[in-house]
Simulated scan of single mutants.
Amino acid sequence: MKKVKIGSTDLEVAPINLGGNVFGWTLDKDASFKILDAFVDKGFNFIDTADMYSYWVDGGEGGQSETILGEWMKARGNRSDVIMATKVGGETGTHPVDTSKKHILETVDKSLQRLQTDYIDLYYTHFDDNKTPIEETLEAYDEIIKAGKVRYIAASNVSPERLEESFVVAEKNGLPKYQALQPHYNLLERKGYETDYAPLAEKYNLTVFPYWSLASGFLTGKYRSEDDLNKSVRGGSVKKYLNDKGLGVIKALDQVAEKHNTTQATVSLAWLLAQPNLGAPIASATSERQLETLFNAPELQLDSEDLELLDKASSY
C-alpha cells in the first residue's frame, strides 16, 4: 500500500486515518480491539484520538479512547508499527479550551500515561483558546519535543489567521512548525476549508487529514428522510443535511457508487483522496463491514466524469 509522508517529517502513513472517538463511547474495550486488529491487519497504521474522547460519556475529563488504545498497543506489542495522533486543548466536562504552556505540559503526560507509551507521533492543537500567545504554545511544544515526548505537531481547529501567524512566530524564534492540518472537510462542508485553509496547506506543505469525512454518517446514504434519523446515536446531527443540496449529493453518490459497484461512503472518501494536499481522511468504524468501506476507498480511482458530477452536486 502506498504510504503518505506527513509534511516534512519522516512519518509515513497509510491513506486512511482511523478515528478513535468511538472507542470507549459506542464501542467497549473488546469491540474496540476487534476493530483495531482488523484495521492493522489490512496494512493500515494511522490512528487518531484526543485526550478529551470520550468525556461526554460521563461528563469527566475524557481519556477513555486513549486508555483503550494504550491497552491495545500493550497487548499487541505493536507500538512501533502504529502512527499515533492525539490532541490537546479541547474542552471537556471539567476544563475549558486551553492552549497555555501549563496545560500542555500537564496534559501530555496524562496522555502518555493512558496510551502506555513514552512518545506521541503527532500531537495536535485540538482547539485554540485564541488568547494564549502563539509563542507560548509553540514553546510548550518545543519543550516536549526536546524531551522526546512528542515527535511532531499539527493543528486542528485554529483560525486561518492564528495558523498563519504560528508559522511566522515559529520561523522567527526557531520553534516547531505544524506539519499537518485536521479541518472539517467533506462533500457537504467544502467552503470553509477550500476558501480559508487550502491555500495555507499548499503554502506551508501541510498534509491534510479531514475530520467528519462522512458528515457524521450522512454521506453513507443511510439518512434520506427524518424517519431515518433514529438509526444511530449520531442521527440528530445530520438533520441539517436533509435539504435539496444534501439529497442532491446523495443522488450523485448513488450514481457513482452504482457505476463502480461500491458504497456511497467509499466514494465520499475517494473524492477526498482526490483533492490536493489530502493525506488520509479520518473515519471511524463500529463494525468490520464499515471498515471494508474505508479499506476500499484508496483502491477506488474516480475518473473525471465522477469528480465533475460530485463537484457540481456539492458546489457552493
Rank of each mutant, 00 (worst) to 15 (best):
L310M: 05
G24E: 00
S237E: 02
Q113H: 12
A50Q: 01
F167K: 04
T125C: 12
A252K: 06
S166D: 07
G221N: 01
D28T: 05
G89F: 02
K240H: 08
K222L: 04
A50E: 01
P176C: 08
I16K: 11
N130T: 08
W25H: 09
P276H: 11
S100M: 01
M73Y: 02
L200W: 13
E258H: 08
S268W: 10
S213D: 02
S225G: 15
Y55A: 07
L273Q: 12
L112C: 05
D37P: 09
A265K: 00
S315M: 04
I16T: 05
W56V: 06
R162L: 04
V82D: 09
E139G: 13
K177S: 13
L188W: 07
E202C: 02
D10Q: 15
E61Y: 13
Y124A: 01
I282L: 01
N17C: 02
V169H: 09
S65E: 01
N45A: 04
T125H: 00
L253T: 13
S100A: 09
R162M: 04
F39W: 06
V82P: 09
P96T: 09
E202R: 15
V267M: 09
Q64H: 14
P15D: 02
V88L: 09
D303N: 15
V150N: 08
A170E: 05
K191Q: 14
A313I: 07
